Amino acid sequence: MKIAYMILVHEYEKNVKFLINHLLEDEEAELFIHVDKTVSIEPFYVAHDRVHYIMNCARERQSPFAMNKLRLRPLTNAHYIRKKRKRVTWGGYSMIDATFVLIGAARLCNPDYYCLLSGRDFLIKDPLEWKNMLSASYPFSYIDGGKIVDRWTARGLDRVHFHFFYLFKNKKAAYYQNRIVRRVGHLIGYERKMPYGLVPYCGSQWWTISDRHMHLIFRYLYSHKKYVRFYHTVGIPDEQFFQTILYNSHLKSELINRSQTYVFWINGFVKEFTPKDAAELEDKEYVFARKIKYEDTELQEMMAQQWK
């Protein structure tokens, strides 16, 4: 059972290094790391004999469903994307672009599962235990999803009905931009429809998708190019893009409706975990949690003691 861990990174290099080293305890695992274009990649490097720095990545304007033209070095298990890194803006399609850079690279190692993580995620369970869970549940995928109208209410449909253009990395600036778009959209009475008659779904950005379902996604994108164009101007597409394809598909019965990553929301904001939360996290039926609050490894080390 081979798992491709794909990590989206823009901060917290100590946590990223700790996460990489512990995921490499699974000798079959392959890691792919995308560091945001706006920050230096060097601080995130891990000194490890199984680490490789990818020099040639996909072309800038390559279609998202095309295979990345790069080579993976044999006998290495962690690969940094060095060229054609993306500048990711909060809530924008650039997050999907960066995700497809990782997927394109990961496809070359023919994994059984693709697991998407953040640089502020940390392990709360043994990665080898997670591997055994996936082996037992293959080819089922772990992807949290529900209809937007049920999860986000009718107001949440604004994210697909109106055109959103995220230009800022700052979340607060993007929030006020959202409000302007919504007000203008409601004022003029404009509302666009979902392509191909799809029902819009939403859920956690962090998922673990089997190769069977990833192949389905690529086949769908190849024959439904309007879908990609539509989602370029959807609000927060990273929480909808993959859910909408899979939960509208004939394989939706093979989806486990939950994420592998524990996230706790407080008044619209994600809780940031500290060492004081270790006991609480030990009881969670998840493999990862986010977000880590401090740029150190105290909490991660406390959690790792469970399986050492």
Rank of each mutant, 00 (worst) to 15 (best):
M1V: 11
M1E: 09
I3D: 08
M6Y: 05
I7F: 00
L8Q: 14
H10I: 11
H10R: 05
E13D: 15
N15V: 13
K17D: 09
L19V: 03
L19K: 02
I20H: 03
N21H: 08
D26V: 03
E28D: 13
E28G: 05
A29T: 15
H34V: 08
D36V: 14
V39E: 04
I41S: 11
Y45C: 09
V51L: 00
V51R: 01
H52S: 15
H52P: 03
Q62V: 10
Q62K: 09
R71P: 00
T76A: 06
T76I: 01
N77F: 10
H79I: 05
Y80D: 11
I81C: 07
I81K: 01
K86L: 08
V88W: 00
S94M: 09
A98W: 03
I103D: 03
G104L: 04
C109A: 07
N110R: 07
Y113S: 10
Y114M: 08
Y114I: 02
L116A: 13
S118A: 14
S118K: 01
G119D: 12
G119L: 05
R120M: 11
D121V: 05
L123R: 08
I124S: 03
K125L: 07
L128D: 12
N132E: 15
A136N: 13
Y138W: 02
F140I: 02
D144P: 01
G145W: 04
I148D: 09
R151D: 12
A154S: 14
H161D: 08
F162S: 05
H163P: 05
F164R: 02
Y166C: 12
Y166G: 10
L167H: 05
K169S: 14
K171E: 14
K171G: 09
K172Y: 05
A174C: 15
V184E: 05
V184H: 04
H186V: 10
H186N: 13
L187K: 12
I188E: 06
Y190T: 15
M194A: 13
P200V: 12
C202W: 00
S204G: 15
W207I: 13
I209G: 06
F218S: 07
R219A: 12
R219Q: 14
V228Q: 03
R229W: 00
E239F: 09
F242I: 10
T244A: 09
Y247D: 10
Y247E: 08
L251Q: 12
K252P: 04
N257P: 07
N257H: 11
R258S: 06
Q260M: 12
Q260W: 02
Y262I: 05
F264I: 01
W265H: 11
W265F: 08
I266P: 00
F269N: 15
F269C: 07
T274I: 03
E282C: 10
K284D: 07
E285Q: 13
Y286T: 06
Y286E: 10
F288V: 03
K293N: 07
E295P: 03
D296F: 02
E298I: 15
L299R: 04
Q300M: 09
M302C: 02
K308V: 15
K308M: 11
